[in-house]
């Protein structure tokens, strides 16, 4: 499963993996802000913005093919909106690229711009998820002031997602083994409701067992972590390179494009 793959990738070792999660989270946020604020007409400058996430993924040794495949899975909604530009913006423009020059529509350029921005910001986000363990991300959120209750909630949620997804697969396989023909809508809903209901009851029972076991071991509502990571020189360097890169591209964009 692709999400398990991302989880595995985050446990690798590389200079990017070693960076502080807070710095990476804020850097991705800032980078996304600058990519999104590019005008819809600037298509070619997007290639320059793609260098940063590419460099991060290559340095972290994350397979690019996996990342692109992952982005493809989450793209349908954006793809529909990008393609709708082709229908609604039919203004004729001339696009020039090196020695080539052709007439096209504004919609096509907007479509390219939306897809390009989507791929770049998503690659940056996958770069963050694939190089940061979720527990580190949670610690970063706690340090950035996210309420304790919510951080604990995210921790538990992440811990049990994969377990319940597996349970979901088991139940669905059992249904597939028993349901030999297409049912009417009423029966479909009734069966699905019973399945969802039984997963719900199973989840509540699981929660009670987990809660009792954790309290038996002295859980007081806090996650305790070994060692407190501080922002180090490498983190400052990473942030500084990103800042320089963005300033450089902004200058390039303002002056030449």
């Amino acid at each position: 499963m692709h999400h398990a793959q991302i989880d595995r990738l985050s446990y690798r070792a590389s200079p990017v993996h070693a960076l502080d999660a807070r710095v990476k989270l804020i850097c991705v946020l800032v980078f996304s802000v600058f990519v999104i604020s590019l005008p819809a007409t600037s298509v070619s400058i997007l290639a320059c913005y793609a260098i940063w996430p590419f460099a991060v993924l290559v340095t972290a040794n994350i397979p690019i093919k996996f990342v692109l495949k992952h982005i493809l899975i989450v793209s349908p909604f954006v793809a529909v909106l990008a393609v709708s530009n082709l229908l609604y913006d039919k203004e004729v423009v001339v696009a020039v690229f090196g020695p080539w020059r052709w007439e096209t529509t504004g919609g096509l350029l907007r479509c390219f711009s939306i897809c390009g921005k989507f791929i770049i910001t998503m690659t940056a986000l996958v770069g963050l998820a694939a190089t940061t363990r979720f527990s580190d991300l949670l610690a970063a959120m706690a340090k950035l002031g996210v309420p304790h209750l919510f951080v604990v909630q995210l921790g538990f949620l992440y811990r049990y997602i994969f377990m319940l997804i597996d349970r979901g697969y088991h139940v669905l396989r059992a249904r597939a083994g028993r349901k030999l023909r297409r049912l009417g809508f009423g029966d479909e809903v009734k069966t699905s409701a019973a399945i969802v209901g039984s997963i719900f009851i199973g989840s509540i029972d699981l929660a009670q067992r987990v809660s009792m076991a954790m309290q038996g071991r002295g859980f007081d509502g806090r996650f305790h972590r070994l060692g407190k990571k501080r922002i180090a020189g490498a983190d400052y360097l990473f942030a500084a390179i990103l800042a320089l890169y963005i300033v450089g591209l902004q200058f390039l964009g303002r002056v030449f494009y």
Binding site: L149, V152, Q153, L154, G155, F156, L157, R159, Y160, I161, L164, S203, I204, L206, A207, Q208, V210, S211, M214, G221
Partner: peptide
């Protein structure tokens, strides 16, 4: 806490 997380 566990109940909330598992409900998610």
């Amino acid at each position: 806490f566990a109940l909330m997380g598992i409900m998610g």
